[in-house]
């Protein structure tokens, strides 16, 4: 029981958006999908949501190819920057259409979210602001009766209050109907507390995936004299992922992340590293757990 993507490749002209990317989404888990602009997040979600056709690779839901089966496709929904249907209609008409197409659409929650986001049910979609259109598309996604919901940039154009409301809305929808929700976003700190797992992609490949709450046993920031930090990391078998120089000392991001092994090597070795920052640090070296945003930023910043 899962949605798994295997060796997915997609090229646009001469550029490779997805490069044999593999990832598995388990049932009933909220995922964060992170990566820089152009890393391949939207292309990945477009392929899963059947809006793009991959060049090669497989997308399988519970053991069956997804794209060939209407019954399976009905269990997946992608809310991204495009409105899949409707034009020039009011929000209330859009919600009524959704409820008509599938009686299990959560119309009650949809109306509640329209009110909470301060949207007018009588407003015509095309006349809404950028942020309001985002809220409308995302709230529809949150009320869809699917098992795998993908939200691509659910906070585009949203003010800070509405961003907070969006995070709460995702959690509220998840409570009302347990399902997998994959959130592709750059607002990492905003969403961090509602995530169970994170997937990081870069240059069309998955470079890391881990339990968000176990970041403390997955990576650490070591601050101290350069040679001492490097010797300690080497002695403990820790991979140095990024180094920032701060005067005489360095801040090194270390972890068990295996950037060259996209096939699950990283998560398999996490347990072995558990608690590595508590074990006797050399004099002059301090260790702390990076927050999720710092980790992601420092992991991908020098890879280009």
């Amino acid at each position: 029981m899962s949605l798994s993507v295997t060796a997915l490749t997609k090229q646009y002209g001469g550029s490779t958006a997805l490069n044999r990317l593999s990832v598995t989404f388990e049932p009933n888990v909220i995922y964060g999908l992170f990566g820089r602009n152009g890393a391949g997040k939207s292309t990945l979600l477009g392929c899963i949501g059947n809006r793009l056709i991959p060049d090669t690779g497989r997308i399988v839901l519970d053991g069956e190819p997804l794209a060939e089966c209407e019954r399976l496709m009905a269990r997946v929904y992608l809310a991204n920057e495009r409105l899949p249907w409707w034009d020039g209609v009011t929000l209330s008409a859009m919600l009524a259409d959704c409820a008509h197409m599938d009686g299990r659409f959560d119309l009650g929650l949809a109306r509640e979210l329209v009110a909470r986001f301060g949207l007018s049910p009588d407003a015509v979609y095309g006349r809404l602001s950028l942020g309001q259109r985002t809220m409308a598309r995302m709230l529809i996604g949150l009320c869809m009766p699917v098992d795998y919901l993908f939200l691509d940039e659910p906070t585009t154009g949203l003010d800070p209050v509405n961003r907070r409301l969006m995070v709460e809305a995702v959690l509220e929808a998840y409570r009302r109907r347990s399902r997998t929700i994959v959130i592709a976003t750059h607002e990492i700190a905003e969403f961090a507390d509602i995530l169970e797992r994170a997937v990081i992609i870069d240059q069309g490949r998955r470079i890391d995936s881990f339990e968000v709450q176990d970041l403390c046993s997955h990576a650490a920031l070591l601050v101290g004299p350069s040679d001492v930090v490097r010797a300690y990391a080497a002695g403990r078998g820790l991979r140095v992922l990024d180094v920032e120089h701060r005067g005489d000392s360095v801040s090194a991001l270390v972890g068990m992340v295996s950037a060259s092994e996209p096939e699950g090597g990283a998560s398999a070795s996490v347990a072995a590293s558990s608690g590595f920052i508590t074990g006797g640090l050399p004099d002059g070296v301090r260790a702390r757990t990076p927050d999720l945003q710092t980790y992601m930023t420092r992991l991908v910043q020098r890879r280009h």
Binding site: V29, I30, V167, E172, Y174, R175, D193, I194, L195, E196
Partner: peptide, 17 residues
Amino acid sequence: TTEISRTYTINPATVLK
């Protein structure tokens, strides 16, 4: 877990842990 998750906007799996 549901109550704590809602009140503090934390993933229910985290609360359960």
